[in-house]
Amino acid sequence: MRVLHIITGLSDGGAEAVLYRLITHDAQDIHQVVSLTGEGKYGPLLRAAGVSVTTLNMPRGRVTFVGLKRLWQVVRQSRADVVQTWMYHADLLGGLVGRLAGVPVVWGIHNTTLEPGHSRRATIWVARACARLSRWVPRRIVVCAQAAVGVHGALGYETSRMIFIPNGYDLSRFQPDSSARERLRREWGVPDDMPVIGMVARFDPYKDHANLIEALAWLARQGVRFQVVLVGTGMTSENIELTRRIEAAGLTDRVRLLGVRQDVPAIMAALDVHVLSSSAEAFPNVLAEAMACGTPCVSTDVGDAAQIVGDTGWLVPPRNAQALAEAVQSALTAWHDRPAWWARQQACRERIAQQFELQRMIEQYQTVWASAVGGVERRC
């Protein structure tokens, strides 16, 4: 089957990572990608994997006549059996163009939060427009989080077309790695008896690094020993807002800002505890990636975090630094019981292997595409 993917952009985000994993591990279908904006992080990686990538270079949040015309041309020339769109703007533009071109369309929803004051007004407007079109444009709507069904149903989306497909993970890439742990801790100058807390996330209001820093400051005041590594876009000393918060919290000597890294699996394996402080998520990939590496997690209870973590870690309400700090303290206390901690690490990886394996996700997408092309109403 020929699948044309239309995505808002190819930057360092969760939906973009899932698209990359799906395409590069699907040996059965032929894939082509269109980015409404630029090539970001994943454009070069997809091209290196032999995937055709077209960038329309439209300014983010704006539609241009040239970009829309090029999108129409690519859809018509692709001879695709199905158009798979990713994220609201691509759902709207890619969905309309695919529908008008006579190609079956499958939308992709990778968000669960649409709140005035937190979400961009343009994003909310586009989501509402999609809700009105959801009975006409897509034959199927893939949601990556169970929580997204209720949120979008309340907005007016046609829930009968929604199919839940949880994200899948390459367990051969994300796995425990004792040699990486030893190497990176030497690189960071951290002794083996010092617990390392980490968070892999770009600098974004929804990731709520302020919440994390406040929680870490409380732990430091209690005399808890720990070191922290922060990884992702914006996690550098050039980020003045972030560095000022870290300095004001008295954490400069405890926090390492590593920026964007290509060795995320190794970093996950080197951590003792992964923390996610987000105020909103859909299906937070970093939790599953850390757990696949045998790293227990402390997370805010956002999106499908509870479904990922299960009973292997700790969940707290979002925007509650005190609760987050106390949960991290509980995790670090548990870390000192080595036999019990090892069992917890094993349970983390086993949970991801059983529920979120990559090939299972690929097969579910293939089933959705086949049913969209055939027009048969069925669920995965």
Rank of each mutant, 00 (worst) to 15 (best):
A101L: 08
T367R: 15
A215L: 04
D304P: 03
V309W: 04
R62C: 02
Q28L: 01
Q329C: 05
A101C: 12
L36M: 09
P166E: 07
V83S: 02
G375Y: 08
G310N: 09
M58R: 07
Q355R: 15
T55L: 03
R344M: 09
R244A: 05
A331M: 10
W86P: 02
V151F: 11
I7S: 06
E214V: 13
V53K: 10
E158S: 10
L257T: 02
R261M: 01
E289H: 04
A49M: 09
R70P: 03
L219C: 04
Q359W: 00
Q146W: 14
L315A: 03
L133C: 04
V137S: 08
D204T: 13
V53F: 06
G150A: 14
V151Q: 13
A282H: 02
G294N: 01
F65I: 13
T233S: 06
P166S: 07
R21I: 01
S35C: 05
H209C: 07
R319S: 11
G156D: 09
S279M: 04
A154L: 14
V260T: 10
T312W: 10
A269C: 03
V196A: 07
S278W: 03
V190A: 03
V328T: 13
V63Q: 02
D301L: 10
A27L: 15
G223Y: 01
I6A: 06
T112R: 08
L100P: 07
E115C: 08
H31Q: 09
L332M: 15
V53W: 08
R140K: 15
V316N: 11
C144R: 04
A331F: 03
P296Y: 01
E326T: 15
L276C: 05
G9M: 01
V142A: 13
G94K: 13
G310T: 11
A217S: 11
E326W: 14
R256C: 00
L287V: 05
G189E: 03
D12P: 00
Y169H: 08
A248F: 02
L19M: 14
S52H: 15
G153Q: 12
Q307K: 12
L114K: 04
L4G: 03
Q222A: 13
A305S: 15
T333K: 15
T333I: 08
I165L: 09
F174P: 05
L45M: 13
A48E: 14
W72K: 10
V260H: 08
Y365A: 01
S277L: 05
E281H: 08
A270H: 00
R261Q: 05
K69I: 07
M291T: 05
V190G: 02
G259P: 01
S371F: 00
I109E: 08
M1F: 02
E289S: 05
P44K: 07
V309C: 09
L276I: 12
G67E: 07
A266T: 02
T64A: 10
D193L: 13
E115H: 12
W188I: 10
L71G: 07
R70Q: 14
W125S: 09
E214F: 09
V260I: 09
R120Y: 02
M291A: 04
R161M: 02
A122Y: 04
I267D: 01
P339M: 15
S35D: 06
